[in-house]
Design a protein around this nucleic acid. Sequence first.
RNA 1: GCGAGUGUGGCGGAAUUGGUAGACGCGCUAGACUUAGGAUCUAGUGCCACAAGCGUGGGGGUUCGAGUCCCUCCACUCGCACCA
Length: 852
Amino acid sequence: MKYNHSIIEKKWQNIWEEKKVFKVEKDNKKPKYYCLEMFPYPSGKIHMGHVRNYAIGDVISRYKFMQGFNVIHPMGWDAFGLPAENAAIKNKVHPAKWTYSNIENMKVQLKKMGLSYDWDREIATCDPEYYKWEQMIFLQMYEKGLVYRKKSLQNWCNDCHTVLANEQVEDGKCWRCGEEVTKKEINSWYFKITDYAEELLDYTYKLPGWPEKVLIMQRNWIGKSYGAEVNFKVENEDIDITVFTTRPDTLYGATFMLLAPEHHLSKELIKGTEYECEGLKFIESILAEDKVSRMADDKEKKGFFTGKYATNPLTGYRMPIYIANYILMDYGTGAVMAVPAHDQRDFEFARKYNLKIIIVIKPNDRDLDPETMTEAYAESGVMVNSDKFNGMDSEKVKTDIIDYLESLGIGKRAVNYRLKDWGISRQRYWGAPIPIIYCDYCGIVPVPYEDLPVKLPIDVEFTGIGNPLDKSESFVNVKCPKCGKMAKRETDTMDTFVESSWYFLRYCSPKLDTAPFDKDEVDYWMPVDQYIGGVEHAILHLLYSRFYTKVLRDLGYLKFDEPFQRLLTQGMVCKETYRCEEHDWLYPEEVENGKCKLCGKDVEVGRVEKMSKSKKNVVDPDNLIDEYGADTARLFSLFASPPEKDLEWNEQGVEGCFRFLGRVWRIVDKNVDLFKTELPTTGEETKVVKDILYFMHSTIKKVTNDIEKYQLNTAVAAIMEYSNNLIDIEPLVKSDYEKYCYRNAIENLIIMLAPFTPHIAEEMWNITGHEDLVSLSLWPSFDEKYTIKDEIVIAVQINGKVRGEILIQRGMAEAEVLKMAKNNEKVAKYLADKVLVKEIYVKDKLVSLVVK
RNA sequence: GCGAGUGUGGCGGAAUUGGUAGACGCGCUAGACUUAGGAUCUAGUGCCACAAGCGUGGGGGUUCGAGUCCCUCCACUCGCACCA
């Protein structure tokens, strides 16, 4: 019989589905294992990144399953989002219809991969039964003061009548219509993630199962820094300017003040003065720039003098106050004390506007001259010009100065975070409605719990201009729950990251209609033991989920602090690219003998890059699975590189995996009779028996350890090596007991393949006469004693170079081994006429001889 | 600029504590077989002036012994980036 993947795969997928093999229930008698892969956005088609992600997760799941864990392995759809709405505008299909039909398509594709999902737990976040609970949690957070509404400046397109994300602003213009983007003060809802900044940071040191890289990224994102808040009085005004600084040691050198253009004092200080007109123009011009160009690397520092002065509280220096383009409203207080001698940016600013530079820290070995210095001295050193702190070490003096400021009542110790509260308002239709009502009489009124869900209305039109919800009469007009008068509904929807911040909890009881999730179920299943997904979510999704988990804990829902015990961030799937001068990126089939088929010009074999449509280097999983089968597709994506590294797609490598499966198939097919014969379970321990047992046990050991360490590529390599060994030894298998051992070895080969290539494994398991499913078999264990060989070959080195090999008995006495080594023919040659200076024996490993 | 990481044959990639570098796969070379298959099987395959010598980005060091440890330089990738 030949290996026919298409028949086999369909057959076993049906059997798994009929028998509900992967359906799980809570079972207190069994240890649980929660294996989760990041759920996909239903774009309509799966791509290679999905294949890789889900293949990795499926190996882990199936392996844990075979080890006797009660494995929950769910799948669902991150179904809200902009593409559905864009499709609605373009093709006049309702986003729901578009989304659900995409889900259907992708589900078919995923099923063709043979993944061990419990499809009964499937969820789609656009289902009112899902977002209903999200709205409820929103209200509970609101009650707890974790949600608030605030006005802030946002990108606004006057033509499309909508807020734009930073990514949607191209060259200061709207990505869709090209209209100049302006800033507008918009009311938005925020989650108070900053309340959890400290805990989120703290726990990055308590997640040993996470990649250090991701933890560092999160720490940087949270951006905690220690320093001081200092108040500066504005001359002749009853105004204080508060700044945050991490360098209180430079306070004596602060010679001017800087305000962000967005800072309320920027406008206030110039109000009604001769500076007002030009100052406002300056502010406008800075705000008009989009964030990218304003923050550009070599951006020239620009400032506007407000005509006002502040007083340095320690020196009394009269500090001119400027509005400056490089001051960020998002960081600290949006106001900065400038110390040109010790900060490069302030230095450049001072040089440009001719401002005073006072040196307050000098290096140990030289003096600085403010007149001639060409750059700021930002390092630590010895304090000068700093009154009673002179001569002290600038690092050590930081806390002393803060103490001093506190004693004078003009400043205090402060911690600052870069992390900002999470703005969740989106002026979009295809998202979960924010359950709030605005009443002219009662103000902001939360939707009563019994009125949830606030469903998305159907009577909407998708024109691409503004938020369709604004124009839905049935949705907007609502009675105030408090006073009963007519009021208006909030038409913003929630950021889609909100749905993905808790979906892993909903999987525990996906159909529950009385609460977001069942507490007992969550107590049993959570936290997720292994989470797998792309590193592109290293910050946002993973940080939000951590935040949400802590919020739900504080709302009394959860008993744990962190959602994901272990995290695996898989690398991208890449492929070679081709480029031609004339036609830019080319498909592989447009290249012939290194020339472009379209124009005949030389083709540049481009770099290996992430698969993308624009670079014409994508491989369609559907075609791949049709051609080679899901088992081959899975095997190649696991074998070609370690999970966390980028994977280079290579057609010939795929064929190699396909051929390997063919080889395995043939060993089994050829030896199928062994399984129909009665064979003795004991017998003479021949060399063949010992070898088979050695291969088998050492492979089980290697594969088990590798899977535990997520080194799936080497686990596959070990199975390949094992099958090669079984092929080699097959002609030597003679006695019945040898046959018994060989049969056993083949069984273990099939079992070990099951998590990686489950269809072919099931089929081979079946044709070898097994009536149960290999997917339900127990993962084999190994006996250490068989993994050790009695006879071993060790190397003999002379002056560090390998000069010979000797065969020894394991555990042989040192003296005897050394004697053998020296007597070895090849070695003896090197010893002649030389003086033996040193002899080293590393037990059962090597002999090292040093001669002169 | 800051932070993290990577660098090993023609290619993807292996190498517990420092202990025979190149597992496994691809590719390549030669051969066998054929019921011509997506074949399959056997042998070989780091480099080279082939008994020697050289080889894990370059240079130095520690060691009997270094891909692995230390110093130094270089290249590339990713993340953050006017963070006060």
